[in-house]
Every structure is written in structure tokens, then in C-alpha cells.
């Protein structure tokens, strides 16, 4: 078992499985955020449920945090191992001739997403922890929509979010379909999988961007 866990293929499976988990999380996240466009009350109810349900708070949230950290740490480990395997660099290397920019720059799109996650946690998660566990303020089921809207007053923050979502799209454009290949799925359905993955990679970041822009223009 230890040989399996230390093998290069086990690292691929781990990256792919954590990617699938994060892709599912993004879908859930965007669905809840979309509610804020259509109904203030619906968004508040969903957010209040997510923020107070013990199963989500004390089981799903730690799993999510672990999933995010695991995906990033494993990605960096892979990158370091790959750098070591490269040896001397080419004088001239025409990577664009045989692979996409997205596939060659997962590290950089990943770093941009990591920077965004830090900003996102500072914006929403840390104030939430402060509200609940430091200030111990009384629970207000109607505060969530206002807090969300308030964050998108600043055009700089909105721009930072939209740029981050572009990097998310670039990361997903390669990462989603690549996870299937890593899990050994390459068959007659692969063309369809690639199309669905491409649609997901564009639509989800686009929806996130729309939500940020909607609240900026509807203050």
C-alpha cells in the first residue's frame, strides 16, 4: 500500500479526485450565489442554513478546507518533482506547437486562484468567524444579502474577482477534462466529456462574474 501511495500514478488519482470534489463544490456555490440575483430572501434562507447547519459547518466545511489545501499542496509537490525531472532547460522550446496554454500553465492559474481564495476568505469567511465566535453577536437570518452586497461596492474588488474568475476558467478548461484522463476514463464518451467540461469551465466562472457585477451595478 505504501508503494501505491508513493507512486506517481497515485498522485495523479489524488489530484483528479480532489479536483472532482472541488468542481462539485463550485457548482453548489454558484447555485446558492445565483439566488442573490433572483431573491434576497431566498439567498438569506440558503446562507443562514449553510451558516448554521452543524453538518455543513462541522463536517462538510472541514472536508472542503482539507480538499482545497490538499489539491494545492499536491499540485505544488507535483510541480517540484516535475521541475527536478526536467534537467537542463531547452534553448528553444515551442510548447505552443503541441499543447494548450492552459495545460502548460496550471501552476500559474492555480496560484492566481489561491491568491483569490485568500482574498475571498478575508472578505467573507474571517468576518463570519469574527461575527460568530469572537464578537458572539446574536444570529440574524437576514444579514447575509446585505453583507454580500456591501462587499461589491468597491470596483477594485469586483475587478479582482472577475480577473480571478478568468483564471478559474483557464484552470478548469484543462483541469476538468484532464481529471477524467487521470482516472483512466478515455473512451467513446471522451468527446462528450470534453464538451461538457468546456461548457462547465466557461459557464461557472461566467456566472460568478455576473453575480459580482450584478451587485456592483445594483447598489
Amino acid at each position: 500500500m505504501s508503494e501505491f501511495l508513493s507512486s506517481s500514478l497515485a498522485r495523479k488519482y489524488a489530484m483528479a479526485l480532489s479536483a472532482f470534489f472541488l468542481i462539485f463544490f463550485l457548482l453548489m456555490h454558484v447555485i446558492i450565489n445565483l439566488l442573490s440575483i433572483f431573491s434576497e430572501d431566498a439567498f438569506n434562507i440558503a446562507s443562514h442554513f449553510m451558516g448554521t447547519n452543524p453538518l455543513i459547518q462541522f463536517a462538510m466545511q472541514p472536508v472542503l478546507i482539507f480538499g482545497v489545501i490538499f489539491h494545492f499542496v499536491m499540485g505544488f509537490i507535483l510541480e517540484l518533482k516535475n521541475k527536478k525531472a526536467q534537467g537542463v532547460k531547452y534553448f528553444k522550446d515551442n510548447g505552443a506547437a503541441n499543447s494548450t496554454w492552459m495545460s502548460r500553465n496550471m501552476l500559474y492559474s492555480g496560484l492566481a486562484i489561491l491568491a483569490f481564495i485568500v482574498l475571498h476568505l478575508i472578505d467573507f469567511w474571517i468576518p463570519e468567524l469574527k461575527y460568530k465566535y469572537i464578537d458572539v453577536l446574536p444570529e440574524d437570518p437576514n444579514r447575509y444579502f446585505y453583507e454580500l452586497q456591501h462587499k461589491f461596492i468597491s470596483p477594485v474588488r469586483v475587478a479582482a474577482y472577475v480577473i480571478a474568475f478568468i483564471f478559474l476558467a483557464l484552470h478548469l478548461l484543462h483541469g476538468f477534462q484532464s481529471a477524467f484522463q487521470s482516472m483512466g476514463i478515455n473512451n467513446k464518451y471522451t468527446k462528450s466529456i470534453k464538451k461538457i467540461a468546456k461548457i462547465y469551465a466557461i459557464i461557472i466562472p461566467l456566472l460568478f462574474s455576473m453575480i459580482a457585477l450584478f451587485h456592483y451595478f445594483n447598489q
Binding site: S7, S8, K81, N82, K84, A85, N98, S99, R104, S182
Partner: peptide, 18 residues
Amino acid sequence: MVKQMDDEGFGNCTNTAA
């Protein structure tokens, strides 16, 4: 074969398809 590949120090595939 995979063990030998890893022992030889080759990198990890990231599915660039190059």
C-alpha cells in the same frame, strides 16, 4: 514498470498531450 519509471526519476504526467 510504473515503479521503475518512478525510480528512474521521470516526471508526472499532467495531460498536456504534447
